[in-house]
C-alpha cells in the first residue's frame, strides 16, 4: 500500500475507530496512563511507516494491535526490564508462589459444607468492580500480565502469542493457565475485601476454615 492523501484519511479513520481498544490494551500493558498514551502514539507512528507492508486493508486492525504489542515488548527490552519473552523455567513458580494447583473462584463459591446467603455467583459478580479487575491485572507479575492481555484483551490465538513472545505453544498454554490462576486468586481477595458475604460452615462440617462472626 502506498500512502497518499486518501490513505491518510483512511488511516486516520481506522486508527480513531480503534483508539478505545488501543488505549485500553495499552493501559493494561503499560500500567499507567502517560506511558499507555505514549505507547499508542509510538505504535501509530510505526504503523504509518510500515504501511507499505500491509497487503490487505481488512487486516489492518489485527496488524495494528500486533505492532502495539511488539512495540511494548521491544520497549521493555530496551529499558532493560526483564522482558516477558523470558521464561521463568517452571512458568512462574518463583513469581507466583509454588502452588501447583489452579486457583478457582468457582470452586471456592461451590465448596461443599458451606452455606451461602443467596446466589453466591451473582454476589461475586455484583461486587466485582471494573477497577478491581484493573488492579488485579496490573498487580500480576509482568510475564503473566502480558500474556493475559494478549489472550483475554487482544484475544490472540495461542499461535499468535507464541510467535509474538517467541515461546512454544505448550508454554503459552501453561503460562496462561498460571496467569489466570493468579488473577482469580487476586479477584477472590478483592471480593472478600469488598465484603463478599462469607459463608458459614454447615453444622456437620469437619473443618471451620471459613467461619466468621
Amino acid at each position: 500500500m502506498n500512502p497518499g492523501a486518501d490513505a491518510r484519511e483512511w488511516f486516520e479513520r481506522e486508527v480513531l475507530g480503534a483508539l478505545p481498544e488501543l488505549l485500553g490494551t495499552a493501559r493494561r500493558l503499560a500500567k499507567n496512563e502517560a506511558d499507555a498514551e505514549d505507547l499508542v502514539a509510538e505504535a501509530i507512528a510505526k504503523a504509518w511507516t510500515a504501511l507499505g507492508s500491509l497487503h490487505d486493508r481488512a487486516s489492518f486492525r489485527g496488524w495494528l494491535f500486533r505492532i502495539l504489542t511488539n512495540t511494548y515488548l521491544s520497549d521493555c527490552r530496551s529499558r532493560a526490564i526483564r522482558p516477558p519473552v523470558e521464561s521463568l523455567g517452571d512458568d512462574g513458580e518463583g513469581a507466583g508462589g509454588g502452588e501447583g494447583e489452579q486457583f478457582s473462584i468457582f470452586e471456592r463459591l461451590h465448596q461443599p459444607f458451606l452455606l451461602w446467603w443467596g446466589n453466591q455467583e451473582r454476589e461475586f459478580f455484583d461486587r466485582l468492580l471494573r477497577e478491581d479487575l484493573e488492579q488485579a491485572i496490573d498487580a500480576l507479575p509482568e510475564i503473566f500480565r502480558v500474556i493475559v492481555v494478549m489472550a483475554d484483551l487482544e484475544e490472540l490465538s495461542y499461535q499468535e502469542i507464541a510467535t509474538a513472545l517467541n515461546i512454544p505453544i505448550g508454554t503459552v498454554r501453561s503460562r496462561l493457565a498460571r496467569a489466570r490462576s493468579l488473577l482469580q486468586r487476586a479477584l477472590w481477595e478483592h471480593a472478600i475485601d469488598a465484603g463478599l458475604a462469607r459463608p458459614r460452615s454447615a453444622p456437620l462440617a469437619s473443618h471451620r476454615r471459613n467461619v466468621h462472626d
Partner: peptide, 26 residues
Amino acid sequence: RLRLEVTALARVPVPNQFEERVRTLI
C-alpha cells in the same frame, strides 16, 4: 462470564486531549 469481564477492560473512553494528540500526529 469472567472472561467477558476481563475482555471488557480492553475498551476505554478516550480523553479528548489524547484524541487531539493522535490527530495532530497523523
